[in-house]
């Protein structure tokens, strides 16, 4: 990937109002949309990638997210921030995709973990070590809300308040979900080690 790419992506930061004004003006729409992409694409990509795991799926989801954003942005009233709105759409799209991929949601946890380990091992765009492989498997076997909270807190460093807006739940519920997730992951990692 991409080592150098991150540094150049954050040269311009426009406010929500500026971005929306550009995108909703026919003459500046493409330019504005380019800036919106530039500003958010990587953060959204990694957020989605952690949910769907494969690059191909993350790419599909991200494209759909931005197409929906472009289509619905003119109706965006700004009651939440653009950041919240984008992350909410991206989260919903990513969750929607993994549900389509996993018709049998009642699969036992162990089978889910084995599936994820096998999938990541054969993924040309994953090179994590064994510890990371098992961590990803443990995360994938969590209930959705716990998985989202764990990823957002542990990997993305999202604040509980921001998370509460994106996932439309209370800070207390998020803290509890994170706690549950950590306990389950710790338990699984111990099992794998011994």
């Amino acid at each position: 990937m991409t080592a150098a790419s991150l540094n150049n992506k954050y040269d311009y930061f426009l406010s929500d109002i500026e971005l929306i004004a550009l995108i909703t003006n026919r003459e500046t729409a493409n330019k504005g949309f380019g800036l919106l992409l530039n500003q958010y694409q990587e953060r959204l990509y990694w957020h989605v990638r952690r949910i769907v795991l494969s690059h191909e799926d993350a790419d599909d989801v991200l494209q759909n997210v931005f197409i929906k954003v472009f289509r619905y942005l003119p109706n965006f009233k700004g009651d939440s921030s653009l950041y919240t709105w984008l992350f909410r759409i991206a989260t919903n799209e990513a969750i929607g995709l993994i549900k389509k991929r996993k018709p049998n949601i009642n699969l036992p946890d162990d089978e889910i973990k084995e599936e994820v380990v096998a999938k990541l091992k054969s993924d040309p765009y994953f090179n994590g070590d064994d510890a990371m492989l098992h961590l990803k498997a443990a995360i994938a076997s969590l209930p959705e809300k716990q998985m989202l909270v764990f990823n957002m807190k542990y990997f993305e460093g999202t604040k509980y308040n921001d998370m509460a807006e994106i996932l439309e739940t209370s800070v207390g519920a998020l803290k509890a979900s994170y706690h549950h997730a950590v306990k389950k992951i710790e338990m699984y990692i111990k099992e794998v080690q011994y």
Binding site: M1, T2, S5, K9, Q41, H55, L62, Q63, N127, L133
Partner: peptide, 18 residues
């Protein structure tokens, strides 16, 4: 985390979405 993307993925993404 061990995740990677194809080379220049983000540079090409904008054109793809447009």
């Amino acid at each position: 985390e061990g995740f990677e993307t194809p080379a220049n993925y983000f540079d090409a993404l904008e054109a793809k979405i447009h």
